[in-house]
Design a binder for these strands. Structure first.
Lengths: 117, 117
DNA sequence: CAGCATCCTCCATGATACTG
DNA sequence: CAGTATCATGGAGGATGCTG
């Protein structure tokens, strides 16, 4: 996504959390550091490639920290940075909104889908 | 996007505001009702098709209201619903976060891009 | 003016197999 | 265990022309 100087900061935020799985990853890392394998299990349905991809992007954006233990067998874990936590904070209300309206939204989108037929 | 019962409500919210231009549209409608043509001008770069698409989806999700004046020539405008305003409220902190960190994020993503080369 | 129809492009996501 | 490398794909997004 292209960053523009105009308009609302939401777009900026979306360049960071816009990936399909990123909110999930953030959600899980918000509970503490996680190893790669853990995340793979926690974020059910994601492929390894995409998980790595999203983790890299999050790390590049300074939201999470990748720690490589340089051991054999490999051990790597990911942890939120303070910057990441500030993002998580900003995300709280939206998260709450989503939780509150989950059912209604699911309902509406189901209708829209059937109408679209 | 698929709605799942687990995880954070952010995903739910993203099914509503996840479109490439939706935050922009919301941003502009947050200032008051806008006619189709106005939005087309305000959201620079968007094609008519996509604008209509996103407006429809937002309307289907109950976030905005489409009002057709049934006149010739056609006049239609769009307005946020109370539900939409509640979403806008929840979006505020994220918006602020984005604004605060806009420069830093732009910087980081530029680096990542050049590194990727 | 507002919107629909058609066609097309591209990229995020995905599936699979291999490696240090 | 934690990746990389390839190849495939689907659907969001885009360009253009037409209509009531």
């Amino acid at each position: 996504m292209e960053l523009r100087s105009d308009s609302c900061g939401i777009e900026v935020a979306l360049t960071v959390i816009g990936g399909k799985w990123k909110p999930l990853v953030l959600f899980h890392l918000n509970h503490g550091p996680r190893r790669f394998g853990e995340l793979k299990r926690l974020v059910t349905g994601i492929s390894e490639k995409v998980l790595i991809q999203q983790l890299r992007e999050l790390a590049d954006d300074g939201v999470i920290l990748r720690r490589d233990y340089q051991t054999v067998p490999p051990k790597v874990d990911y942890e939120m940075t303070p910057f990441g936590y500030s993002l998580a904070q900003a995300l709280q209300p939206l998260c709450a909104w989503g939780d509150e309206n989950r059912l209604q939204i699911a309902e509406l989108q189901k209708e829209a889908q059937s109408t679209a037929t």
